[in-house]
C-alpha cells in the first residue's frame, strides 16, 4: 500500500480522535458518554500503533510529528492528574506528617533557632529600647503602637479588621517564605527564620514597656501559638529541602531533593492550615471585647491541640520508624 493510500485510510480516525480530545479537554467526558469514551480508547490505541509503525510505513516527517502531538494530546486526556484526593491528604496530614515531624531534626533546629533568637531579642528590646529601634525602626514601632492603641474592644472595629487582614497576609507570607528560601541550601531559610525571629522578638520586647502593651498582648495571646508554630514548621520544611541537597544520604542530589520534597510540601501545607486557623482566631476573637481569660483559654486549647498533633499523633507506634 502506498503512503498516500495509507494516510487516506487513517485520516478519518485521526481527525475523530482529535475531535474527541477537544471534547475531553472541555470537560465533557460525562456528556460524551461511555460509548464515546470507549471509542476514544480504541482510537488512541490505533494512533499509538500507527506511531509505532510510522517508520515502517515511511510516513512523511510532518505526519510523524502530527502523530506525536496527537498521541501526546490523547495521552494527557487518558492519564489525567489525580485531582485532590481528600482522603489521601487527610491521611497524609493527620498520620504521616506528625510521625515524620516527631523525628525530624530540622523541626528541632528551626524551633531552637526561632524561639532562641525570638526570646533573646525580646529580652534585648525590653532592656534596651534602642535595640528595637535598630531592628524594627522608629516608624515601624510607632505604627505598631498606634495600631494596638485601640486594637482590642476599641470603637474602631474596622481598623482592627483591616489590621488583621494585613498581619494575616504578612505573617503567613513570612512562614511560606521561610519554607521557600530553605531550598537555597538551607541558608536562605535560616536567614529568613533568624531575621523574622529578631524582628518579631524586638517588637514583643518593645511592646512590654509601651503604653499599648496590654492591648498588644491581649491581641496576640489567642492566635500566637498557632501562628508562631506555623512559622517554625514552614522554616523546618524549607531547611529539610535545602539540607537534602547537601546531605544526600547516598542518593543522587536530585533523588535526595525529590525525596525530601515529597515530605516537606505536606509539612508546609500543615503550616498554611495553622496560619488559616490563626487567622480565623485573629479575625474573630483577638480584637473582640471577650475577657482575657477566654483568650488565654483559647491559647491553652491551641497549645493542647499542637501537643496532641505533634506528640500524640506523631509518637511512633507499632515499631514504625519514620526517621528520615
Amino acid at each position: 500500500m502506498k503512503v498516500v493510500e495509507l494516510l487516506e485510510s487513517r485520516l478519518q480516525n485521526w481527525r475523530e480522535l482529535e475531535q474527541l480530545c477537544v471534547q475531553m479537554e472541555q470537560h465533557r467526558k460525562r456528556a460524551a458518554g461511555a460509548p464515546a469514551v470507549g471509542r476514544f480508547a480504541t482510537l488512541y490505541r490505533a494512533a499509538c500503533a500507527d506511531l509505532a509503525l510510522a517508520d515502517a510505513y515511511q510516513l512523511p516527517p510532518n505526519t510523524v510529528q502530527y502523530l506525536h502531538q496527537l498521541v501526546g494530546r490523547a495521552h494527557n486526556q487518558l492519564y489525567l492528574s489525580r485531582k485532590f484526593a481528600y482522603k489521601r491528604w487527610l491521611y497524609e496530614l493527620l498520620h504521616l506528617v506528625p510521625q515524620r515531624l516527631f523525628h525530624d531534626n530540622c523541626v528541632r533546629l528551626a524551633f531552637c533557632l526561632f524561639y532562641g533568637v525570638f526570646i533573646a531579642s525580646m529580652l534585648a528590646a525590653w532592656l534596651s529600647p534602642a535595640f528595637a529601634d535598630l531592628v524594627v525602626g522608629k516608624e515601624g514601632l510607632q505604627q505598631v503602637e498606634e495600631m494596638h492603641a485601640d486594637s482590642v474592644g476599641g470603637t474602631d472595629f474596622n481598623s482592627a479588621q483591616a489590621g488583621t487582614g494585613f498581619y494575616l497576609n504578612h505573617n503567613a507570607t513570612i512562614g511560606l517564605r521561610c519554607f521557600v528560601f530553605g531550598i537555597l541550601l538551607g541558608v536562605g531559610g535560616i536567614y529568613e527564620t533568624i531575621f523574622n525571629a529578631l524582628y518579631l522578638g524586638s517588637m514583643f520586647g518593645f511592646m512590654i514597656t509601651s503604653k499599648s502593651g496590654p492591648n498588644f498582648f491581649q491581641f496576640v495571646t489567642a492566635h500566637g501559638p498557632f501562628e508562631l508554630t506555623a512559622i517554625v514548621l514552614g522554616a523546618a520544611a524549607g531547611m529539610k529541602l535545602g539540607f537534602s541537597i547537601i546531605d544526600t544520604r547516598g542518593y543522587t542530589r536530585t533523588a535526595s531533593l525529590r525525596r525530601a520534597f515529597r515530605e516537606a510540601v505536606p509539612a508546609a501545607v500543615t503550616a498554611v492550615i495553622l496560619f488559616g486557623l490563626a487567622g480565623l482566631i485573629e479575625a474573630c476573637l483577638s480584637p473582640s471585647t471577650a475577657p482575657y481569660a477566654v483568650k488565654a483559654g483559647v491559647a491553652v486549647l491551641c497549645c493542647g491541640v499542637l501537643i496532641f498533633y505533634f506528640v500524640a499523633l506523631g509518637y511512633p507506634r507499632g515499631g514504625q520508624t519514620n526517621a528520615v
Partner: peptide, 29 residues
C-alpha cells in the same frame, strides 16, 4: 464595614499569590 473589605482582599491576595498555580494545575491536569 471597610475593615471587612480589607480583610477579605488580604485573604484573596494571599490565596492567589500562593495557591492559584497549585490549585489550577491540580484541577486542570
Amino acid at each position: 464595614s471597610l475593615g471587612t473589605v480589607s480583610l477579605l482582599a488580604a485573604v484573596a491576595h494571599f490565596f492567589t499569590t500562593w495557591f492559584y498555580g497549585g490549585v489550577f494545575e491540580s484541577l486542570w491536569n
